[in-house]
Amino acid sequence: MKIRKDIAQRKRTDKVFSLVGLIATLVGIVTLLALMIDLAWDGTARLNWNFFTAFPSRFPDKAGILSAWVGTGVVMFVTALAAVPMGVAAGVYLEEYAPKNVMTTLIEINIANLAGVPSIVYGLMALGLFVYKFQFGMSILTAGLTLALLILPIVIMATREAIRTIPGSIREAAFAVGATKWQMIRHHILPYSAGGILTGVIIGLSRAIGESAPLITIGALTFIAFLPASPFTGTFPFLSFEWLKSPYTVLPIQAFNWVSRPQKAFHLNAAAAGLTLMAMTLAMNGAAIWIRYRFRKRIKW
């Protein structure tokens, strides 16, 4: 039976590939799992209330990550505040308004390339621009803007992808009742692509949260024992932006600082900080999945 032999032969190839694929998948998952288990093994013991509420210290068992997680939080806040409006506006412009010409194509290629530029390059650029030229100093503002530039291409591309999934018939329907372009974008394009855009924003932020290289070049501190000034004040106008100028540290830098110490006890602290960072990242990714799910459920074409 030549046919059967032939089929059996082809099916064997099928099996071989599925096995190769499975192994490739496992390599990724097992590595990640091993990493997490190792971190948890070392770090869990250090995860107590004191660890989250104490400043760093030269005594490993008294040291905490208060300044680091607050720093990470506020820097991410500034990053999101800068990257989201800029990225979404740029994405909408490129998708909806930009004429299809050589200039636009050049801009598009550039944005795609920017996404692949090593983060240290952003740090060097920010050192020259934000720290020296604009005199923002080694501040939360500088860090937030630098990371915003870093994730801007991700936000722009996510925005464009999300906009492209909206069918042309929906645009035409809006135009057909007399909507202007901006009304069409405001009432249709933005709400229907919001899920995709938010997902992209969170993916961008979870990349930014783990960055340390660009922040080291622009002067993040490795030891800091105070928090930024409060944004709320007791006197008029009750809001203060002093905190933007404050020095800071972030979780990855704190972890790096501890891991480079000779004492073993500090290495446990580093593991605990790493664990915290990972939990924050996973929580953000989970939020991205949840948001995408919610929006998809509401929108049917």
Binding site: P167, S169, E172, A173, A174, A176, Y192, R298, I299, K300
Partner: peptide, 12 residues
């Protein structure tokens, strides 16, 4: 002048 399209295209 309004229009009805070939395939129903209600907004979501």
């Amino acid at each position: 002048i309004s229009m009805v399209f070939q395939k129903a295209n209600p907004f979501p």
